[in-house]
């Protein structure tokens, strides 16, 4: 039997597959489709301090082998999430819950982090400094080295009981520089990558399809970009990396782990096939056997 368990810092996961934020809601709705406990973790829908309806529609555009979303962090607010959504998820899920937290100010991130810190059901804070849908032209904390340093530093101060993972944007000149800032400010790990800023124009209306004009480009098409970012960052930082971006098969999982990911999130693929993660977990041992991998933890960074 092959071993598909991984250790993400001090957290042991039965397998490296984590549901990516924004593609799996708060998880519990999907327990009627399959047993959620086959997943290593679930990163909840990006959550902010106050409830948000999000951006105007259309929020979705299709691309070649991918999609653009401009949801804009629609969520019921951190208090509702901790009080109602997480307990409902915990009833049907025993493994790692990642609280994906977004915000408009350092104060908002810190306020959310304090609440996350006290919630026993949350295993990790995934600091979303990289959502391209909250500010004009996709600007966010993750695109400015100074702002990134400040937000990670302040959140780290109040997040005393949980690992802090920072989810970074690929929409920067040098993602390694951003990763190093996070490591220096005490982040326990990194989630790489968030969506690429993209857009589509409708030939019939001759206007952008997305109401907000731009949005986050995800799906199979961005896999090589994610892989490259993980590969570069792995060489320069010591903290673990959760790989994200276009993963749609067990082969992709192995490829991403070879680049340096310890665990892997599956996002857009779930939107076109809600059983994608279940299939990936089931296929992982077969693909490992095919490539003579006995213990998946051993291949992390093997591509270097």
């Amino acid at each position: 039997m092959v071993d598909i368990s991984v250790s993400l810092g001090n957290i042991n996961l039965p397998n490296p597959i984590i549901a990516a934020s924004g593609t799996f809601g708060y998880g519990y709705e999907f327990s009627k489709y399959f047993n959620l406990n086959i997943l290593g973790g679930i990163s909840i829908k990006g959550t902010t301090l106050e409830p948000r309806f999000g951006n105007p529609t259309p929020r979705i555009a299709e691309c070649y082998s991918g999609m653009i979303n401009s949801v804009g962090m629609q969520n019921p607010g951190i208090k509702n999430v901790i009080g109602e959504q997480i307990p409902m998820l915990r009833k049907c899920f025993n493994n790692l819950i990642l609280a994906n937290i977004g915000g408009f100010s350092i104060g908002e991130f810190v306020a959310c982090a304090k609440l996350v810190n006290e919630c026993d059901d949350i295993g990790m804070l995934e600091l979303n400094v990289s959502c391209p849908n909250l500010h004009a032209d996709g600007e966010n904390f993750g695109t400015s080295p100074e702002a990134l340093k400040e937000v990670v530093k302040e959140v780290r101060k109040v997040l005393t009981k949980k690992p802090l993972y920072v989810k970074l944007t690929p929409n920067v000149t040098d993602i390694v520089k951003m990763a190093k800032i996070c490591e220096e400010q005490g982040a326990d790990g990194l989630s790489l990558i968030n969506t690429l800023l993209g857009m589509r124009i409708d030939l019939a209306t001759k206007k952008p399809i997305i109401a907000n004009k731009m949005g986050g480009f995800s799906g199979k098409a961005i896999f090589p970009v994610a892989l490259r970012a993980i590969y570069q960052v792995y060489q320069q930082v010591k903290i673990p990396i959760i790989g994200i971006g276009g993963v749609s098969s067990a082969r992709d999982v192995i490829e991403m782990m070879l680049a340096g990911a310890t665990a892997v999130q599956v996002g857009s693929q779930t939107l076109i096939n809600p059983f994608a993660m279940k299939e990936i977990v089931a296929n992982l041992p077969k693909v490992m056997a095919e490539y003579k991998i006995n213990k998946i933890q051993d291949i992390i960074g093997g591509g270097h």
């Binding site: 593609t23 709705e29 929020r59 979705i60 555009a61 979303n69 629609q74 939107l271 076109i272």
Partner: peptide, 14 residues
Amino acid sequence: ERMGCGFGACMGCS
């Protein structure tokens, strides 16, 4: 509305 998933996961059509 333009939909991402069609089954309630992505919040694209809210």
